Amino acid sequence: MKTIGLIGGMSWESTASYYSLLNQGVKSALGGLHSAKICLYSVDFAEIEVLQRTHQWDEAAAILIDAARRLEVAGVDFILICTNTMHKLYTEIQAAVRLPVIHIVDATATQLKQAGVDKVGLLGTRFTMEEAFYKGRMQQKYGIDLVVPNQIQRDSVHEIIYQELCLGKINELSRKVYLEVIQDLSDQGAQAIILGCTEIALLIQQEHTTIPLYDTTAIHAHHAVKMALES
């Protein structure tokens, strides 16, 4: 079994989901007392959030590159960045290490293509919904069109992530806001919705809507389990 390297802590709430999903996946595949081989480097999200908010992306990249290099020295076989937003720095992080860094968009888009989805709604942080690093890769590499919420909705989705979900707060009124946004994206032609922030699945699950949801945390973790178990 290969060892999975995790750059986590952004937030630790969603990193805990990664840890659980990876171990559940290995146990499901191998049975018995099997669990995943994992090496986790968890950053201080308070420092990262300030750098995000003030657009100090070079400084944020330096922190995550240091984390990736430490994981490489520790002997992991490949790396996951346990957050959608920080894939903005994917190119810099991948260039800094010899190991493969598994892109969350690639794992998600593969599942969407397999399901025949070619137009999808995207929820995430303001960075993920508005910038090209996520939407561009999905569109250019996989030919999948994305629909994003309007400006007011994007602000609400973003604030709920940072002010509630990253702090482990689950609010029924916020769930209602998200479900209204999801319905609006569906009305605009989205065949499914990408939960493009690793915390969103703490609030929204498939049981809450009939519109197909693609949880990037679960998809990323599932892809990592398959890689870890490949001979």
Rank of each mutant, 00 (worst) to 15 (best):
61 A>Y: 06
216 T>A: 04
225 V>H: 06
175 R>P: 00
75 G>D: 00
210 T>Q: 14
63 I>D: 00
86 M>C: 10
163 Q>R: 13
76 V>Q: 09
172 E>C: 06
63 I>H: 10
130 E>R: 12
68 A>D: 02
123 L>Y: 01
147 V>N: 09
63 I>P: 09
58 D>E: 14
74 A>E: 12
76 V>W: 06
120 V>S: 03
165 L>A: 07
148 V>I: 15
204 I>Q: 03
12 W>E: 05
192 A>R: 06
46 A>H: 13
8 G>T: 03
167 L>N: 13
213 L>M: 06
214 Y>K: 02
145 D>T: 10
130 E>Q: 14
162 Y>G: 08
136 G>E: 08
108 T>K: 07
43 V>K: 04
152 I>Y: 13
112 L>D: 01
82 C>K: 00
58 D>Q: 12
94 Q>K: 10
111 Q>L: 15
64 L>M: 12
136 G>W: 07
173 L>F: 13
116 G>H: 10
107 A>T: 09
138 M>L: 15
179 L>A: 09
111 Q>T: 10
147 V>M: 07
137 R>N: 05
64 L>K: 00
75 G>L: 02
13 E>D: 02
166 C>R: 04
76 V>E: 03
173 L>N: 13
110 T>I: 04
150 N>V: 11
218 A>C: 10
189 G>W: 01
61 A>V: 07
24 Q>D: 13
166 C>D: 05
18 Y>C: 07
201 A>S: 15
101 V>I: 11
27 K>F: 10
220 H>N: 09
92 E>T: 11
60 A>L: 12
31 G>M: 04
40 L>S: 11
230 E>W: 04
182 I>E: 02
64 L>E: 06
123 L>R: 07
33 L>G: 06
4 I>H: 03
64 L>A: 05
141 K>F: 12
78 F>S: 07
97 V>A: 00
172 E>W: 02
221 A>T: 07
44 D>G: 04
186 S>R: 14
22 L>Y: 11
173 L>H: 13
195 L>S: 01
177 V>M: 11
23 N>L: 02
181 V>Q: 06
142 Y>G: 01
162 Y>D: 07
130 E>W: 01
102 I>D: 01
212 P>K: 09
74 A>P: 09
207 E>S: 14
153 Q>N: 10
37 K>S: 13
173 L>E: 14
82 C>Y: 00
50 V>T: 14
85 T>S: 10
31 G>D: 04
205 Q>D: 12
211 I>D: 01
10 M>P: 05
166 C>G: 11
165 L>N: 01
138 M>Y: 04
50 V>F: 12
150 N>W: 01
120 V>M: 05
13 E>C: 04
97 V>M: 04
125 T>F: 03
118 D>I: 11
163 Q>P: 00
81 I>M: 08
71 L>I: 08
176 K>F: 12
134 Y>S: 10
219 I>R: 00
183 Q>Y: 11
112 L>V: 03
58 D>A: 05
113 K>F: 03
56 Q>T: 01
191 Q>F: 08
175 R>F: 05
59 E>S: 14
120 V>H: 02
186 S>E: 09
181 V>L: 07
64 L>C: 03
196 G>F: 01
144 I>Y: 05
143 G>Q: 06
80 L>C: 13
7 I>L: 07
152 I>C: 09
177 V>T: 15
39 C>I: 15
229 L>K: 06
59 E>T: 13
73 V>C: 06
168 G>H: 04
22 L>E: 11
17 S>T: 13
151 Q>I: 14
55 H>I: 10
205 Q>T: 15
201 A>V: 12
60 A>N: 02
